[in-house]
Every structure is written in structure tokens, then in C-alpha cells.
């Protein structure tokens, strides 16, 4: 048990180190963005003086390294700074804290991700098991072909096909409001959920299928068969408990994608998610928001992968019960 905690502690520490390195990358990448925020906000007619004053007001005139440390220290305190937008040359500061801008969008994204995961993960596991069980059957080929088609088609294309096909039955604009009830929200996100499910299910299903098929060739499965185990017992009792590690990894990967990679779907269904926020903020050079989004995306990846590793450890008796 002690060893287990040691492993988990080590992974957590590594996660933090990764996050730190990522924060450096994000910061330097954003400082490389072309264009000048002061110029973008104040317009071409602004004088050098007003531009300089604007920059010093936001701390943009400080050296890069100092700006990085100011930012990262504040982030560690939970303060992502204030948005650049809402500031102008008139001197009124209407800007809002980054967190306040992001919170509702993040909630929306997480909601859509959870709903999609709740549909897609069980579906992918069941399909994966069934295709492994009936390998090379018509069902297997059909399921593989279909999921490959949906993963190969661009997301927006799938989304528009669904809109054409189901537009009459389900809402095509997912403009959720904070005060809506859960059922109303679910109805609104039905089409985005189906689109995303179609996009991610193939990956998870094929990994489940491959992991199970791989295990079915191992000597202990033959042994189980020769001791009279039924097909269902072989799959659920003998193969699946040993297959969780690779399956968890691919699930984590796809869940992360649901948080960080769904901007196209958000745009098609005008869903106010965090992906859309980030793209908009890049357009308006709202650096604090872009940085905060990027950092949250990175943390999501790291956290989900950590969880997948953890599942891998917890389902591996070699690590759980050392000699």
C-alpha cells in the first residue's frame, strides 16, 4: 500500500512539473503572437504617449521574465488577472476578472463533456466488447466501418448532416442559459452530444476491441476455456480485468478532447463553451484569458492522464500487491 501512495505521489509531482513547463510554453508562445494589444485596442490613430501609458497600465512594458513571474505567482494564488477587453483610452476600466468571464463557459463545456462521456464511454465499451466477441463477423465489420466513417468525416460536416436530418426534431441552436433546468439543457445539447459521440466513439471502441482481442490470445484465456468457462465468463472475468489500463488511457485522451477540442462543434451549434471563448480571445488579443484557457486545457490533459495511470496501477495486481 505504501508503495502505491509513493507511485501516486510521484505521478502527482510529475504532473505539477509538467504543468509548470507548459505554463512557460504558453507564456512564451503568446508573447510571440504577432500584433500589439495596445495598438489593437486604441486604433491606428493613437499617439505614442497614449500607447505607452496604456502599456504601463497593464504592465506590458515590464521585461518578459518579470511579467511571467507576476502572472504565475498570481495564478498560484488563484488569481488569473483581469481581462484586457473593456479597457480603453478614455480611462474607464470596465474590465472583468478572467475567472468571472470563464466560469460560466467552463461550466457549459464541462456539462457538454459529461453528457457526451456518459453516452459515448459505455457505448464504446459495449461495442468494443461485442466486436471483440464476434470478431470478423458482419457485425464487427459493420461497427468498425461505421465508426471509422464518422471519425474520418470532419466534425462540422457531421454536425450539419445531423442538423439537416434531425433539425425538425431537436433544437439546432444550443443557446443554454444559466437559469435553465437540467432537462431543458439536455434537450438543447442533444445534437452537439450526438456529434461528439460520433467523433470519439470509434477511437475508444477500437482500443477496447484490440485490448480484449490481444488478451484473448494469452495462455491464461486458453486455460480458462479449458477449465470450462463460458464465453461471457472469459470476457468479463478473465479478459476485462486485465484490459483496463489501455482502455482507461484512451478514454482519458478522448475526455480531454471533449474539454479542449470541441470549438468547431461549439461554433456550429453556437454553444457558449470555453473553446469558443479562447478563439474569440485570441482574435481580440485578450492575453490573460488566452493564457488562462490554455493553462486549464493543459491541466485537464494532465489530470485525466493521471487518472488513467492511476486506474492502470489500481488494476495491476503486480503494483497493488508487490511480492
Amino acid at each position: 500500500m505504501l508503495r502505491l501512495f509513493e507511485v501516486i505521489g510521484k505521478r502527482l509531482l510529475l504532473g505539477f512539473v509538467t504543468l509548470f513547463i507548459v505554463s512557460l510554453l504558453i507564456f512564451s508562445a503568446i508573447s510571440l503572437l504577432p500584433g500589439d494589444f495596445a495598438q489593437a485596442v486604441l486604433g491606428q490613430s493613437a499617439t505614442e504617449d497614449t500607447l505607452a501609458a496604456f502599456r504601463s497600465g497593464l504592465g506590458l512594458d515590464k521585461p518578459l521574465i518579470q511579467r511571467y513571474f507576476d502572472w504565475i505567482v498570481n495564478v498560484m494564488r488563484g488569481d488569473f488577472g483581469s481581462s484586457f477587453s473593456g479597457r480603453n483610452s478614455s480611462g474607464f476600466d470596465l474590465s472583468r476578472p478572467v475567472l468571472e468571464i470563464m466560469a460560466p463557459k467552463l461550466r457549459n463545456t464541462v456539462f457538454l463533456a459529461l453528457v457526451t462521456a456518459a453516452v459515448a464511454v459505455p457505448l464504446a465499451l459495449i461495442l468494443g466488447l461485442l466486436t471483440a466477441l464476434f470478431r470478423n463477423s458482419i457485425f464487427d465489420r459493420g461497427a468498425n466501418g461505421l465508426t471509422l466513417t464518422t471519425i474520418s468525416a470532419p466534425e462540422f460536416f457531421l454536425a450539419y448532416i445531423l442538423i439537416i436530418g434531425f433539425g425538425g426534431l431537436l433544437p439546432t441552436i444550443a443557446n443554454v442559459k444559466p437559469d435553465m433546468g437540467v432537462f431543458e439543457r439536455l434537450r438543447l445539447v442533444a445534437l452537439p452530444t450526438i456529434t461528439l459521440t460520433l467523433v470519439i466513439v470509434a477511437h475508444m471502441m477500437r482500443m477496447t476491441r484490440a485490448a480484449i482481442i490481444n488478451l484473448l490470445a494469452s495462455p491464461y484465456i486458453e486455460m480458462a476455456r479449458l477449465s470450462g468457462a463460458s464465453q461471457a465468463e472469459i470476457i468479463f472475468r478473465h479478459a476485462l480485468p486485465n484490459a483496463w489500463a489501455p482502455i482507461a488511457t484512451v478514454i482519458a485522451f478522448n475526455l480531454a478532447y471533449l474539454v479542449v477540442g470541441v470549438v468547431v462543434v461549439e461554433v456550429v451549434f453556437t454553444y457558449e463553451g470555453i473553446g469558443k471563448l479562447m478563439v474569440d480571445s485570441v482574435g481580440s488579443r485578450d492575453i490573460p484569458v488566452v493564457q488562462a484557457c490554455a493553462l486549464i486545457f493543459a491541466a485537464t490533459y494532465i489530470l485525466l492522464n493521471l487518472l488513467a495511470d492511476l486506474i492502470g496501477i489500481l488494476t495491476n495486481p503486480r503494483l497493488l500487491h508487490p511480492r
Partner: peptide, 24 residues
């Protein structure tokens, strides 16, 4: 045959290390 396997005819495999399920 499943009714006979493991009960009336048993099998002992070459590599015991690979023939036991690591999870149980």
C-alpha cells in the same frame, strides 16, 4: 464439452506463469 472441461478432464499447461490470470 464445457461441462466436462475442468471437471472431468483437466489441463495443466507448460508455462504456469502465463497460464494463471494475473488479476485473480
Amino acid at each position: 464439452k464445457r461441462d466436462i472441461w475442468g471437471t472431468r478432464i483437466s489441463y495443466v499447461a507448460q508455462s504456469a506463469a502465463a497460464s494463471f490470470n494475473p488479476a485473480h
